[in-house]
């Protein structure tokens, strides 16, 4: 089997809280927030991995770890099977350029005083392109790739709409010649018609340039459209992962089922009950056992004490849920057209 483009193994990021006076006296270890906890992730060349989760699930921290904007507490990120930290400097430089980023808010991620041409050109200069003419030509080419005429290189971000700015951000990411783009909620701030334009652009660039994406989003409809495989995060841990088709057709984890049930679907008349009750627990003090047990409609005694491991279930999926542990995968579960809804007796609100 070939080496994946990017592989994260046992990736964790823990942020310690300041020690309280009592902990200081007792020389106790400070409490930590486990923003990302033991996450494995594999990105194959030219494919899209979707990362989905709520606020506080650690999805943005995971993205920052993949980009090496954060140093992991544990685990490693390999590109072509090599860790840039251990590679020779020139090779490390190239490996870093292989992974680029597109951020959520196009209004704050571009320098308002730089023309979009110079914003893109800067990346080329850093990349060692010394000839001014060469850079100019490449800027024009990149702008064209995202659907702008070359003359727009003299425009400032302020003259562009949100969608236009996001296209500039994409062109800037492309300037480094990446093989993988980590996109953190790249279409969340955009109106639906503009969002469509940017999503189409992502898909077209993938076909043309054989790009891989790690697409971080809270929007399942977007993921269903763009992702080949999906990682579902809850409180920093992977609760379900696997091929997107199987996951959307028959999610195995109650949390994924809840997300799919809760996502507003066009024209599906909704009931007055909700997919789950309760709110996201405090990530700084997650529940014992399965962290989802406080909201899970299928909670069992074992869930309150023992954390389930990711186990293979039907359809090539892996889920961390006691419903699947110890039993053979239930083929019915994977072919079920509609995810299981909570017991109708559950009250609409907590």
């Amino acid at each position: 089997m070939s080496t994946p483009l990017l592989e994260a193994r046992g990736l964790s990021k823990h942020y310690p809280f300041p020690r309280t006076a009592g902990q200081w006296v007792r020389r106790a270890a400070p409490r930590v927030l486990r923003a990302v906890d033991d996450v494995d992730l594999t990105v194959e060349s030219g494919r899209t991995v979707g990362v989905v989760g709520e606020t506080g699930s650690g999805k943005s921290t995971l993205g920052r770890l993949l980009l090496r904007l954060e140093r992991p507490t544990a685990g490693e990120v390999l590109i072509d099977g090599v860790s840039p930290e251990e590679a020779a400097p020139a090779r490390a430089h190239q490996l870093r350029r292989d992974v680029q980023v597109v951020l959520q808010d196009p209004y704050t991620s571009l320098n308002p005083y730089l023309t979009i041409g110079s914003a893109i050109e800067e990346v080329l200069t850093v990349g060692g392109m010394t000839s001014h003419e060469e850079r100019r030509a490449r800027v024009a080419e990149l702008l064209e790739q995202v659907g702008f005429p070359a003359v727009w290189s003299e425009r400032k971000p302020g003259q562009l709409s949100g969608g236009g700015r996001q296209r500039v951000s994409i062109a800037r990411a492309l300037a480094a010649g990446p093989r993988l783009i980590v996109a953190d909620e790249p279409v969340s701030a955009l109106d639906v018609s503009v969002q469509a334009q940017v999503l189409n652009l992502f898909q077209r660039l993938q076909r043309e340039l054989d790009l891989a994406y790690v697409f971080i989003t809270h929007d399942l409809a977007v993921l269903e459209r763009i992702a080949d495989s999906v990682v579902v995060l809850y409180l920093g841990r992977v609760v379900e992962t696997g091929p997107a088709d199987a996951l959307f057709a028959g999610p195995g984890h109650p949390y994924t089922q809840a997300l799919l049930n809760a996502a507003p679907a066009l024209g599906r008349s909704r009931s007055t009950s909700s997919a789950v009750t309760g709110e996201l627990p405090d990530p700084a003090s997650p529940p014992a056992g399965c962290t989802f047990h406080t909201r899970c409609p299928f909670v069992m005694d074992v869930c309150r004490t023992t954390r389930p491991a990711l186990t293979p279930i039907a359809g090539g999926l892996h889920a961390a849920c006691h419903l699947h542990a110890g039993s053979t995968p239930d083929p019915q579960a994977a072919s079920r057209p509609q995810p299981v809804t909570p017991d109708p007796g559950t009250p609409a609100t907590p």
């Binding site: 709520e54 929007d219 399942l220 997300l259 007055t272 909700s274 997919a275 909201r295």
Partner: peptide
């Protein structure tokens, strides 16, 4: 709001 909370508020 997050999607699960959005779902709860719409239900409410």
């Amino acid at each position: 709001l997050d999607v699960l909370i959005q779902d709860q508020i719409l239900a409410l």
